[in-house]
Measured scan of single mutants.
Amino acid sequence: KAKLLVLLYAFVATDADTICIGYHANNSTDTVDTILEKNVAVTHSVNLLEDSHNGKLCKLKGIAPLQLGKCNITGWLLGNPECDSLLPARSWSYIVETPNSENGACYPGDLIDYEELREQLSSVSSLERFEIFPKESSWPNHTFNGVTVSCSHRGKSSFYRNLLWLTKKGDSYPKLTNSYVNNKGKEVLVLWGVHHPSSSDEQQSLYSNGNAYVSVASSNYNRRFTPEIAARPKVRDQHGRMNYYWTLLEPGDTIIFEATGNLIAPWYAFALSRGFESGIITSNASMHECNTKCQTPQGAINSNLPFQNIHPVTIGECPKYVRSTKLRMVTGLRNIPSIQYRGLFGAIAGFIEGGWTGMIDGWYGYHHQNEQGSGYAADQKSTQNAINGITNKVNSVIEKMNTQFTAVGKEFNNLEKRMENLNKKVDDGFLDIWTYNAELLVLLENERTLDFHDLNVKNLYEKVKSQLKNNAKEIGNGCFEFYHKCDNECMESVRNGTYDYPKYSEESKLNR
């Protein structure tokens, strides 16, 4: 008799109507990190870190770059004969040098303040090359056809396309004075040089004057150069050297050249137009028929994500570079809930034993079982409120962090190594801060989002509990077992918050 009662009780308990509160689960393989956990499985997430590029040089917003090819900045601007293909260059979106560009200054020497000139050019998007001192009329008392084997072109001695090597005419090199007034309405880049012979005999042979000088002056520039005559090792078949100089001439300003020898005179100059998204990159990537809004030396990035880990040097509207390998923000729920887990921000989770793959029309909802059958029903209101809140948060985070910009490298010469090392340390410090901030932001927001979901499920549970009161009992896994019969209409009233407690209280009292 006792065995019969136990079996009867078990049958009745199993047959009781139930309603459970749960949440969506799926077959997603997404994982995120939080402050407290690593690799948390979630139903949905968004990636904030771009880690792919196309490996190509592309047009930037429809404008092609200027590819210097086998030449570098120095060779292009001075007019190395091997860089003749660059003479027609007028406009570009950015400038590309190759790491091993070999054609710079063909006659050995240095372009002074080269690093600063590169910085200036990094904001130039177009130029006009014009004859600042016409070759045939500007130097009537001097020979202007100086050439050298060091600047050979097609097997013949030649010289820079933008400079003139002035030497004596006959047996004399009379003092020369020439000036140019900038009437271009924009900055003009003027380049010139000073020749330093290897011996007094060479000085006399070329310029006749043993104590020659070169003077260059404008409103913002004033220097006097004296040739340094000295024996030097042979470089590119030359014992002599040429140093090259430049200045930016403001609109309306005048530049005056005065010399008694050794002047490498300007022939062509450049009127410059600035462009905020221009820059110089060093890259071996090849040019393709493609378009982008962000270019790196590795390749083009076409992404609206706020961060990238491809390269710190970028041109155009680019994500911020960070050292992170993963920045994924959760938008959905835990896919593998932890039992009795309390989140960092106070939300209680884990009283549900598992997510439901059968509930596909919402994030949170119900599963019921009664004599009429069983089924899932999503709670659309709480789901939609959660979707709206999380979507707004993700968009806000992306908008705040998605300050796209150009980031170019800084140039230092060989004598500025300590400054370069200090600059690298400062840049590394800023990069570490950006990386830390980005990672911390994602970790915190992921923790908040998961706790937010847990709290929403808990609130749904409490909503049902407050309606049923003692007409049902909690069975410990997020479910309630009714003390009365609850048909589909009754189940719907529980879900929509209109459950009639008094209607079922007498039946429940008897069954309790």
Results as ranks from 00 to 15, higher is better:
1 K>A: 12
1 K>D: 01
7 L>Q: 11
9 Y>W: 05
11 F>Q: 06
11 F>G: 15
12 V>W: 05
12 V>H: 10
18 T>D: 00
21 I>M: 05
25 A>C: 14
25 A>N: 12
26 N>I: 11
29 T>C: 00
29 T>V: 00
31 T>M: 09
33 D>I: 04
33 D>N: 13
33 D>T: 09
34 T>C: 02
37 E>W: 12
38 K>R: 15
40 V>C: 12
42 V>Y: 11
45 S>M: 04
46 V>C: 05
47 N>A: 00
48 L>S: 07
49 L>Y: 08
57 L>I: 14
61 K>T: 00
62 G>I: 01
63 I>K: 13
65 P>F: 05
65 P>W: 09
69 G>K: 12
69 G>P: 09
71 C>T: 04
73 I>L: 15
73 I>Y: 01
77 L>G: 06
80 N>C: 05
81 P>G: 05
81 P>Q: 02
85 S>G: 10
85 S>R: 10
87 L>D: 02
89 A>L: 13
91 S>D: 11
92 W>N: 07
93 S>L: 01
95 I>T: 08
96 V>K: 03
103 N>F: 14
105 A>F: 08
105 A>V: 15
109 G>R: 04
111 L>K: 01
113 D>F: 10
114 Y>P: 10
114 Y>M: 09
128 E>L: 07
128 E>I: 07
135 K>W: 08
138 S>M: 11
140 P>H: 03
141 N>L: 04
142 H>M: 05
143 T>S: 11
144 F>Q: 08
144 F>G: 08
148 T>D: 01
149 V>A: 15
152 S>G: 14
153 H>M: 02
154 R>T: 13
154 R>F: 06
156 K>M: 14
157 S>A: 12
158 S>V: 01
159 F>G: 02
160 Y>C: 02
160 Y>D: 05
163 L>H: 00
165 W>N: 04
165 W>R: 13
166 L>N: 04
169 K>V: 08
173 Y>F: 13
175 K>F: 13
175 K>E: 07
175 K>P: 12
176 L>T: 14
177 T>L: 14
178 N>Q: 14
178 N>K: 03
179 S>P: 01
179 S>I: 10
180 Y>G: 00
180 Y>F: 15
184 K>M: 11
190 V>K: 00
190 V>M: 07
196 H>F: 13
201 D>Y: 04
205 S>T: 14
206 L>K: 10
212 A>M: 04
216 V>F: 06
220 N>E: 08
220 N>H: 05
221 Y>L: 10
221 Y>C: 01
222 N>M: 05
228 E>W: 15
231 A>Q: 09
242 M>N: 10
243 N>F: 15
244 Y>W: 07
244 Y>A: 10
250 E>D: 10
251 P>H: 13
253 D>F: 00
253 D>N: 03
254 T>R: 10
261 G>E: 13
264 I>G: 00
268 Y>W: 14
269 A>C: 03
271 A>K: 13
272 L>R: 01
275 G>W: 01
275 G>Y: 06
277 E>Q: 07
277 E>D: 15
278 S>K: 01
281 I>P: 00
